[in-house]
Design a protein around this nucleic acid. Structure first.
Lengths: 192, 192
DNA sequence: GCAGATTGGCTAGCGGTGCTAGAGTGCCTG
DNA sequence: CAGGCACTCTAGCACCGCTAGCCAATCTGC
């Protein structure tokens, strides 16, 4: 029995190594650099081994994305916890969100941009992602007013995402970044 | 002289054919289907001909994007012209924007998503794009208040873009689309 | 302790991608 | 009509994601 246990353990370790290698490579050189050959070399196995763990490259990226959701949720939670009043909490979580996206663009892309299977707003949404969304929703709750909280949160979140993505693509003036964030927060924290 | 004129004309026609073929193919089968081989077959020339017109595939996509900017600008202008009061104008242009993105996703992607050279907010922004942005800005002007109009417009635009992109990726509940748009408009048309 | 079955990683290769070098052809010029 | 030039095509490079089939090392039953 212990032999099989060892094998399963080793297999699990190798799977972790794949995910870690993919994340590291993506973060240091971008997703374009993450090829199956490169990944195989990184973990010191041959290419086909990857396919005995994941259905394909997409599945590897999805695994990285799920992990990333956990990091994002943690950072948003920390930002919310650090705030002392509701309005400041919204500003803080917005900044935390934008900072995460800027500091870890590859991870952010894996979660939100890549045409990956990660289905949201549906049954199999990873719990980490639901947690991140819930952090946003709880922070916004005092300002939702008569609007449905989920819809309100989605709208605010879209605003954040749009800023993050457009700025990364060079479509927005970087110098105005903080002002845009503040403007969005201001518009969504008005009462009545 | 007329011989050279004919050649230049034919060359220009072929360049147009390339752009049109790329756009049509992208709109009917998605950008993944737009390969240089496929494109060459479509215009009934061999692959290397493409490279005598464009530096590479990216440049072809950028050309499609620039064209698309013109269409977008036209639709936004029409929406603005059709409105009778300022608040309705914002709602109308927001709807027009979202509709354009949904009806022509490949074109929209070429303009805003693809990691293409199309530099915005800089010198060589295509004039069509500047026009589209100006339509937004003029529509929003009555509501910018003390905020810098350009920054205000960028923030609103980011909100639109975020909604469009996240919904396309299945990250937002489609059923709430109109409500989210209305919510965004409402938040950006408050005075004082 | 040894033959046979089985698991599992490897080599090699398929069909595709964007892009390019160099050959060859047809046209215009003198 | 000969020479030169402009232009297009064929063929191929290096890479991609992915997979079939071989081979070796391990475990199992006698």
């Amino acid at each position: 029995m212990s032999i099989q246990a060892r094998r399963e353990r080793e297999r699990a370790e190798r799977e972790r190594a794949i995910i870690t290698a993919a994340r590291d490579l993506a973060e240091s050189e971008g997703w374009d650099a993450v090829t199956t050959r490169r990944l195989a070399a990184e973990i010191e196995y041959s290419q086909p081994v990857l396919y005995s763990h994941f259905r394909g490259k997409d599945a590897i990226m999805a695994a990285v994305a799920v992990e990333g959701c956990g990091d994002l949720a943690a950072e948003l939670a920390a930002a919310r916890a650090a705030a002392t009043d509701p309005r400041e909490a919204v500003a803080g979580i917005a900044t935390a969100y934008a900072t995460f996206a800027e500091r870890r663009p590859a991870l952010y892309d894996a979660i939100f941009t890549l045409p990956v299977a990660l289905s949201f707003a549906s049954q199999d949404t990873p719990v980490e992602l639901a947690r991140a969304f819930a952090e946003l929703a709880e922070t916004l709750r005092p300002f939702a007013g008569d609007d449905d909280l989920e819809t309100f949160t989605e709208t605010f979140w879209s605003g954040l995402h749009g800023q993050v993505i457009l700025m990364r693509g060079g479509r927005l003036r970087r110098a105005e970044h903080e002002r845009r964030l503040a403007l969005l927060v201001e518009r969504f924290t008005r009462l009545g």
